[in-house]
Design a protein around this nucleic acid. Structure first.
Length: 258
DNA sequence: ATGGTAGAAGATCTA
């Protein structure tokens, strides 16, 4: 089974590109972030015609997450139960493959500028995600928590650590909160397979960042032990960043034994 | 040199 996460930076502005990339990456499940549309405005019809089952949590202008699946989706939940806000940043579903897999799709707050209320919100959100993951792990089932974590885990996950020293994506508190989730037993799928330094999933639109490979690795798949046991490889689909009118993020794909 | 890019909304905000 191939499971992808991709921040599309507006599903409407990107829809032809999204359809093309979805065909090319040949996945069974795709978590999308930054839909930037309301739930009712999601292009259900076109995607269902292409064979996708869709679970969607949208909102006006900002955020928005979805899970697309070639298999039926059951037990869909929206939002983190302990996070009392109205931002569309979390969705989860049980993917009914022959061996079912539970998948959570998340869009973690950016948190800039830091310090400040936005950074406080980011850390609060990460604490709620930690609680959620701890509860989910009790089920001892294959569980994959994927999305745009807005977290650069270590110095080798960005092109120039000094440029990110004061950024909410790299501050020690952010990295510590991310490690806490891993320390529960949710492994970083990229780290335990490929693991190379300086492999990126996001390049800023400004200053020719992609051409210079000035990127950061902030899109991650965290996997429970039962999912890690079936993990074979991780692919970063860099080609998506060189298309016309690209998202600033590219898909990250986890390949699992069926 | 306090810029630069992109999207959605709408005469800014978020990233």
């Amino acid at each position: 089974m191939r499971i992808a996460t991709w921040n599309v930076n507006s599903i409407k502005a990107r829809f032809p590109t999204v359809q093309e990339v979805l065909q090319n990456i040949d996945c069974d499940v795709v978590c999308l972030q930054e839909l930037k549309c309301e739930t009712d405005a999601f292009p259900y019809m076109e995607l269902e015609e292409a064979g996708w089952n869709c679970a969607v949590l949208g909102q006006k202008s900002y955020n928005g997450v979805a899970i697309l699946s070639k298999y039926p989706l059951e037990d869909v939940t929206k939002g983190l139960s302990t996070m009392k806000d109205d931002q569309a940043r979390f969705i989860q579903a049980l993917v009914m493959a022959d061996r079912p897999v539970r998948v959570g799709g998340l869009y973690l707050p950016n948190g800039n500028p830091a310090p400040g209320p936005k950074f406080d919100y980011k850390l609060e959100w990460m604490a709620c995600l930690l609680d959620h993951a701890r509860e989910r792990l009790k089920a001892e089932e294959p569980y994959i928590l994927c999305g745009d974590y807005n977290t650069i885990p270590t110095a080798v996950d960005c092109w120039d650590e000094t440029k990110w020293a004061d950024d909410a994506l790299a501050l020690p508190e952010t990295r510590e909160a991310f490690r806490r989730i891993k320390n529960l037993g949710m492994a970083d799928a990229f780290e335990i397979t490929d693991g190379r330094a300086h492999q990126y999933t996001f390049w800023d639109y400004q200053g020719g960042a992609f051409q210079k490979d000035h990127g950061i690795r902030i899109d991650h798949l965290l996997v429970s032990p039962q999912a890690a046991d079936r993990l074979q490889s991780v692919e970063i689909y860099r080609k998506a960043r060189s298309l016309d009118k690209p998202s600033d993020h590219v898909p990250v794909i986890g390949v699992f034994e069926d």
